[in-house]
Design a protein around this nucleic acid. Sequence first.
DNA 1: ACAATTCTGTTCATGAGCGCACATCACAAA
DNA 2: TTTGTGATGTGCGCTCATGAACAGAATTGT
Lengths: 295, 295
Amino acid sequence: MSIDAWDEIRTAYHVARLGTVSGAAEVLGVHHATVIRHIDALEKRLGTKLFQRHARGYTATEAGQDLMQVAQATDDQFTQLASRLRGRGDSVTGELVVTSIEALSPLLSPVLAEFQMANPGVTVRFVTGDRVFRLEYGEAHVAIRAGTAPNEPDNVVQRYSTVQMALYASRDYLGGRAVPIPEDELPGEKFMGYENMDSRAPFYRWMEDIVPRSNIVMRGSDGRSVKHAIRAGIGLGFMATWEAARYEDLVQVVEPKPEWAAPLWLVTHVDLHRTAKVQAILAHLKTAVDSWNLT
Amino acid sequence: MSIDAWDEIRTAYHVARLGTVSGAAEVLGVHHATVIRHIDALEKRLGTKLFQRHARGYTATEAGQDLMQVAQATDDQFTQLASRLRGRGDSVTGELVVTSIEALSPLLSPVLAEFQMANPGVTVRFVTGDRVFRLEYGEAHVAIRAGTAPNEPDNVVQRYSTVQMALYASRDYLGGRAVPIPEDELPGEKFMGYENMDSRAPFYRWMEDIVPRSNIVMRGSDGRSVKHAIRAGIGLGFMATWEAARYEDLVQVVEPKPEWAAPLWLVTHVDLHRTAKVQAILAHLKTAVDSWNLT
DNA sequence: ACAATTCTGTTCATGAGCGCACATCACAAA
DNA sequence: TTTGTGATGTGCGCTCATGAACAGAATTGT
C-alpha cells in the first residue's frame, strides 16, 4: 500500500532536517501549527512515532531518520527533475516527431537531416503514412499536411508552401508528339490514376471529370508506383513539378492549371507550439522552403 | 530550488500512469476537478506542459513521462519505507540504547548480553555515566535510575528492584573484632566516603550525620575506587550487598538499615514505551531481577 | 445514423485545513 | 531569583482547496 500524503512526508523531512517545528515552518512557508498537524497525521498514518517531542524541538527517532533519508533522496530527485524540465522547455533536445504524407518524403528528409546535424541534442523521428497522425494525442510535434486547411481545434496551422501538380508522360509514350497536347485531345489519352480517387484533391476530380474511366488504364496506391508507371510509358499522370523535374525522360504535356496546386500546411498542437524545439524546427522548415522554388 | 508541492507530483504521476483524469481521480479518492487543478498548477509551477489534453484523456509529453518515471521511483521508495516502519514497530531490531549509573554495570551487562543473544537483530548500546541521559532527547530507550522516583513528564516510570546498601570493612581493618559493632561505637571508626556527598542518597546523609568529618579519611568519586579502598583496609564504607557478597575479605559490620536501601527505577519515554523493542527489553530486565535475590 | 458512454472542463457552494493569537514550558543569562 | 528568548501546543475564525452538478465533445456500440 502506497502513501497517500507526500506533502506530509515533505514536512516531516524538513522537521527532521532542521530539528525544530518552527524552523521547518519558516522554510516551508507555513504556520508552525500546520507542521505539527502534518507530523501528527503522518505518525498516525504510519503507526510509528517519528519524533521525540521536547521543549527544545523535535529529534527524529530511528524511524524518523529513516524517513529523512528517503525524503532527502526524493527531494534531490525532484529538484533534478525540475531543473531538467525547465531546461528542456528552453533547449532543443529530446525527441522531435515530424509527420507528413509519404509523397513529401524526398523533400523533407534532407531538410530534417540538416536540422538534426545543426541540433545534435535532438533525435528526429520522421514518420510518414497515409493515416492522419493526431497531434492532440501526442503522436507528433509537427505535421506537414496537404490539401485544404486543417481546422481542428487546438491545432495551430500555418501556411507553408505550394506543391504544383502537373500532367507528365514519358518520351517513349509521346513518341515525338509535340507538347503541349491540345486540351480537347486529352480525354483520348491513356492515364495513370490513383487507387483511392475518393480524395478531394482538385487534380483527382479533374481527372474523374475529363477522362473516361476506361482510359484510366492503371491505378497505384502510392506516389512511387505512379511515378514508375509513367516513366515506363503507360500514359499520362499527375506528378509534382519538383519531382518530375528530376527526370529527363518525363515531359510536361500541358500547361499546369493553378487549381491543380495543393497547398501545404504546417500544423502543430497548441500545447507544444510555444516550445523552443518546435519553434526551431518550424523556422528551419521555413528557411528550407526558399531553396525549393517549387513554382 | 526544490519542489514545493509533492502531492501535485503524485497526482500527475497517477494521471500519467492511467492516462485519464477520471481514472486518476478515482484511484486518488478525490474529485476529478481536483486532479485537473493539480495538473494545471504543476505545469504552471514547472513552466512545462506535462500532458496533451484531449477528449480521450491525458497523454504524457516527454516531460510528463520523465516526471512519471521519477514519481514511480518515489512511490516505490515510500511504499518500502512505510512497510519498513510498520514492521519496525512490531519487531525487535535496530539499535537499543540502555543507560544506567556506572555502579550497576556489573549487574546489567550480563543481562543485556543475554538479551542481545536472544534477539540477534538488535544492537545493544549500554552507556553508563554519572550524567543523566535525557530520554526526551532520544539519547536512550531505557534508563535504569537509582534513588527517588523520577517525576519528569512524558517519562513512564516503573519500580524495578532495590539495592540494599550496607557498611563493610575488610578483615584486616577489623583485626578480629566481633561484628556487629555496637552502633554507638561507629562514630569512632574510620570511614571511606564519596567525593560528591551532596547527593541526597539516604546512606550518604546517615554518614554525614553520624560520622565526624575528620573520620572520613578518604573519599572516592566512583564505586570501584571506594571498593578497592575498603578492601585495602582503610576503614568502613558503604557498598551494595550484592557486590560485597562477592568478596570473602569483606565483612558486614552492622545490620543494614532499611532506609539505606536505594530503589531502582525503569524509565522509558512515553513515545517509545509502547514499541515492541522496548517492551521486550523491559520484560527481559524484569525476568533477570528474580535471579539476583538482592535482599 | 443515432444513442449511449466516457471523457474533460467550468461554475458555485461548502467544509477541511490553515493562520492567528495565546498559553505553556525549558533553558540561559543577568 | 528573575527575566528573556525560543520552542511546542491548542482553540477559534477564515480562507482556499475541494466536491457536486452541469455542460461540452469525442468515441463507441447498436
